[in-house]
């Protein structure tokens, strides 16, 4: 089962396991602080912003154009930013580390 590590803004580390759905949904299931997913995962609210560990960025891939447009206006955006509602839980992302921006 794919494992994903979330690191919250306060430095807490949460290892989550799931088989399907989006990474945002997985984070909510594990009550990861700072991942609200207000819009339910349609890329409208940017409340599921994470920084992907640089070494894992090839696993998640880069943001799509619509997602990148949303991130562009987030004050905490970096090169490795993603909205995790747009990342599917699958073997492809097994082992990635995602940090919730402060």
């Amino acid at each position: 089962m794919p494992k994903i590590t979330f690191i919250t803004a306060t430095g807490e580390s949460i290892i989550a396991e799931g088989t399907s759905g989006s990474v945002m949904e997985l984070a909510k299931q594990y009550n990861v602080s700072g991942i609200d997913g207000d819009c339910g995962g349609v890329c409208s609210c940017a409340t599921c912003h994470v920084h992907v560990a640089p070494a894992d960025f090839n696993k998640t891939g880069a943001a799509s154009e619509i997602e990148a447009d949303m991130l562009e206006l987030d004050d905490n955006v970096i090169k490795f930013s993603r909205l995790c509602c747009q990342i599917e839980v699958s073997d492809a992302v097994d082992g990635v580390t995602l940090t919730v921006p402060g």
Partner: peptide, 10 residues
């Protein structure tokens, strides 16, 4: 079930 929906309704 529109999947990408970056609306500004709120």
């Amino acid at each position: 079930d529109r999947k990408m929906n970056p609306h500004v309704g709120f």
